[in-house]
């Protein structure tokens, strides 16, 4: 049994700065995503689950359509498991409606000129993201109790909240602490992985061009995101 805690936009330098010991586990570092032209969520997770660089294919769908990507189960390494549980992963089974709502509010925020209304949109945006996070957490912990041979939980809160609030460090730190706490509650072999990190752009956050990884079983050096298929299968199934 192995658990992957997939955290969107978990930033290596912040994990270090906040000294989040559970997120760091025993071994941790940056991933190498330099083979991709841009650190895009959908491209990176699609490549992760298939063990292949899927950038060309995903980008070809265009900005809008790419978010609807659903990679068939048999093309993913999850299919090597008898009874896998994958929670809310982009490109596989994530909640399209949730994501549509997030993008809508984000657009509204940047189009809004009035400062007070802007704050109100941000409040809605945050509330929407946090509500989703609470649901995901609940389902994740239920899954850990279940009879699965592989569990992957995908947490978008650091990315979604980060985009509009990255400058609010105390809020970001509390989110990191919550994620740190989630990892601490997972038993057995585990991998923490992010697609990309996040860097400050004024009060906002943009994607940084490396991801974060950590394990409690071995040093992975500077892995590419496509290496995780092999790493997971080797650790879990000895393949």
């Amino acid at each position: 049994m192995i658990t992957v805690i997939a955290i969107d936009a978990l930033e290596y330098t912040l994990v270090e700065e906040f000294n989040m010991r559970n997120l760091k586990q025993d071994y941790y570092g940056r991933t190498d995503i330099s083979e991709f032209s841009e650190p895009r969520t959908m491209v990176l997770w699609s490549s992760f689950m298939t063990g292949e660089n899927r950038e060309a294919e995903i980008l070809a769908k265009g900005d809008k359509e790419m978010w609807n990507t659903r990679i068939p189960h048999e093309e993913t390494f999850f299919s090597h498991f008898k009874n896998p549980f994958v929670l809310d992963l982009p490109g596989y089974n994530y909640d399209l409606e949730q994501h549509r709502r997030e993008r809508e509010l984000l657009k509204e925020f940047f189009e809004e000129k009035d400062e007070e209304r802007k704050r109100e949109v941000r409040r809605k945006y945050n509330e929407n993201a946090f509500a989703h996070h609470r649901r995901v957490k609940e389902r994740f912990f239920e899954a850990l109790e279940g009879d699965y041979d592989f569990v992957l939980g995908y947490f978008s809160v650091a990315d979604v909240i980060g985009h509009l609030n990255f400058g609010n460090r105390s809020l970001m730190k509390m989110i990191y602490r919550d994620l740190d706490d989630i990892v601490s509650r997972v038993e057995g072999k585990k991998i923490v992985l992010s697609d990309h990190g996040m860097k400050a752009v004024g009060a906002f956050g943009d994607h940084s061009d490396y991801g974060f990884w950590s394990t409690n079983f071995r040093d992975l050096g500077r892995p590419r995101i496509t290496d995780f298929k092999r790493i997971v299968l080797q650790e879990a199934l000895g393949e």
């Binding site: 946090f130 609940e138 460090r169 730190k173 509390m174 706490d181």
Partner: peptide, 22 residues
Amino acid sequence: QICEALGRELEFAFVMDHLEEE
């Protein structure tokens, strides 16, 4: 409020985080 948003009780470690960051 943030603790509640994250679905947890008020914890003092969070309070300290907040003060330290500021």
